[in-house]
Simulated scan of single mutants.
Amino acid sequence: MTQQKLEKKPISFSNILLGAGLNLAEVTTLGQPLEVIKTTMAANRSLSLLQSAKLVWSRGGLFGFYQGLIPWAWIEASTKGAVLLFVSAEAEYQFKKVGASNFVSGIGGGIVGGVAQAYLTMGFCTCMKTVEITRSKQAAVEGAVQQTSLQVFKDIYKKEGIKGINKGVNAVAIRQMTNWGSRFGFSRLAEDLIKKATGKKEDDKLGALEKIAASAIGGGLSAWNQPIEVVRVEMQSKTNDPNRPKNLSVVGAAKYIYQHNGLSGLYRGVAPRIGLGIWQTIFMVGFGDMARQAVAKLTGETPVAKH
Rank of each mutant, 00 (worst) to 15 (best):
Val131Asn: 08
Glu132Arg: 02
Glu132Gly: 06
Thr134Trp: 03
Arg135Leu: 01
Lys137Ala: 15
Lys137Gly: 15
Lys137Asn: 15
Gln138Ala: 15
Gln138Phe: 13
Ala139Trp: 07
Val141Lys: 11
Val141Ile: 15
Val141Arg: 10
Val141Pro: 04
Glu142Gly: 12
Glu142Val: 15
Gly143Leu: 05
Ala144Arg: 11
Gln146His: 13
Gln147Ser: 14
Thr148Asn: 08
Thr148Gln: 06
Ser149Lys: 01
Ser149Leu: 00
Gln151Met: 12
Gln151Glu: 15
Val152Asn: 07
Val152Ala: 07
Phe153Ala: 08
Ile156Gln: 04
Lys158Gly: 06
Gly161Asp: 10
Ile162Pro: 03
Lys163Gln: 14
Lys167Ala: 12
Gly168Lys: 03
Asn170Tyr: 10
Ala171Val: 02
Ala171Ile: 02
Ala171Thr: 08
Val172Cys: 13
Val172Met: 07
Ala173Cys: 12
Met177Ser: 10
Met177Ile: 06
Met177Thr: 14
Asn179Met: 10
Trp180Ser: 02
Trp180Cys: 11
Gly181Met: 06
Arg183Gln: 15
Phe184Asn: 08
Phe184His: 08
Phe184Lys: 07
Gly185Ser: 05
Phe186Cys: 05
Phe186Gln: 00
Phe186Thr: 00
Ser187Glu: 06
Ser187Gln: 06
Ser187Pro: 00
Ser187Asp: 03
Arg188Ala: 05
Leu189Ile: 06
Ala190His: 03
Ala190Asn: 07
Glu191Ala: 13
Glu191Pro: 05
Ile194Asp: 02
Lys195Tyr: 04
Lys195Val: 02
Ala197Gly: 07
Ala197Val: 00
Ala197Tyr: 06
Ala197Lys: 02
Gly199His: 03
Gly199Trp: 00
Lys200Trp: 00
Lys201Trp: 04
Asp203Ser: 13
Lys205Asn: 12
Leu206Pro: 06
Leu209Ile: 10
Ile212Met: 08
Ile212Ser: 04
Ala214Lys: 00
Ala214Tyr: 05
Ser215Cys: 10
Ser215Ala: 15
Ser215Met: 00
Ile217Gln: 01
Gly218Asp: 01
Gly219Lys: 00
Gly220Glu: 01
Ser222Cys: 13
Ala223Ser: 15
Pro227Lys: 08
Pro227Arg: 07
Ile228Thr: 14
Glu229Ala: 12
Val230Gly: 07
Arg232Cys: 12
Glu234Asn: 14
Met235Trp: 08
Gln236Asp: 02
Gln236Phe: 04
Ser237Met: 04
Lys238Tyr: 09
Thr239Cys: 12
Asn240Trp: 08
Pro242Lys: 08
Asn243Gln: 10
Leu248Thr: 08
Val250Met: 03
Val251Cys: 00
Val251Ala: 13
Tyr256Trp: 15
Tyr256Cys: 11
Tyr256Arg: 10
Gln259Trp: 05
His260Val: 10
His260Ala: 14
Gly262Ser: 12
Leu263Gly: 09
Gly269His: 09
Val270Ser: 02
Val270Glu: 03
Ala271Phe: 14
Arg273Pro: 03
